[in-house]
Design a protein around this nucleic acid. Structure first.
Lengths: 161, 161
DNA sequence: GTAATTGCAAATGTTTTGCATACTG
DNA sequence: CAGTATGCAAAACATTTGCAATTAC
């Protein structure tokens, strides 16, 4: 993360905390910092391990509490890729994108399509709501299968998830 | 559910079971029947209670096992509306639709937009996958608030969820 | 008959809660 | 110094698993 980004997201957090009369605790800034230093999707347990490895003394409860706050501040977005495990991703300055999940290897791919915004506008006007965020997931089968009928990505042990 | 629908979905299930060499147990037909007799979204616990109330002797494990099978057969679709609770819905002959979830009262609204299919096609071709199903959720704030700042639907105790 | 499927109960994994302690404003 | 936020442990909750009994084929 660039110094510029670091300052920008911290400013957003500070403004949010002040506006909502929450305290500026060191944990909040540490969590924000860890999240923005990481690329890709993460879950709370992963973030907990990451922070433990980085010397921090944090509890899972604090992570659960503060991820909610960061979501509300628009600094983080939440995903659910079909499993009962919430996944998160930093949100500031990252291009809106959606996901396609392989039915076979569960790897997650990203794509962009501006038409989603048109659909959003239609839904907003039709139902009289202002959308704060959306989640579009395609669950799909890979067209390229290996001899054993397994998708071509399955060789990769680690998942994008 | 009409007799016609009942027969149609049972045929789909029978074909699926035969094709995949699974047994035609009475539980499987009972579950299918209950699901198709119910309108709206349900979770496993709700289905369990529904079936218990209807004299059936079923276990949660069987419901979890068979909902997976019905999903695979395309007879049921699965949703996750931001919570760690899987919700389901019958799928046969029901028009494709997507959801908007109120941030405030958590009520779920439905809408249709054919443009989602164009996005799907784009994603399929770009990533070389065949989409089996999708999930599009908008999380949104109601434009019409009551004096207390609470959304206009909050009065309704029961949720569409 | 035999192997898949079931019900039940225990186990798992994620998230929430209760409470005493620490720290912000 | 008042009350919010924290860490830790226990509780809650949805889902999965193990296993003996049942049932489809």
């Amino acid at each position: 993360m660039t110094q510029e980004t670091k300052e920008a997201v911290e400013k957003i957090l500070i403004d949010y905390l002040e506006k909502n009369k929450h305290r500026k605790t060191s944990e909040r800034f540490a969590i924000l910092n860890e999240i923005y230093s990481y690329d890709g999707h993460f879950d709370i347990e992963g973030l907990y391990v990451m922070m433990k490895n980085m010397k921090y003394r944090v509890s899972r409860a604090t992570l659960y509490n503060n991820i909610e706050l960061l979501l509300d501040a628009g600094l983080v977005i939440k995903h659910q890729f079909g499993k009962n495990l919430a996944q998160f991703e930093k949100a500031y300055k990252f291009k809106q994108h959606d996901h396609l999940i392989c039915n076979d290897c569960e790897k997650v791919f990203e794509f962009c399509d501006p038409r989603i915004m048109q659909i959003q506008k239609m839904a907003e006007d039709m139902l009289n709501f202002d959308v704060s965020h959306h989640s579009l997931n395609f669950f799909a089968k890979c067209r390229v299968l290996k001899e054993n009928g397994i998708c071509e990505h399955k060789k990769n042990i680690e998942k994008t998830v």
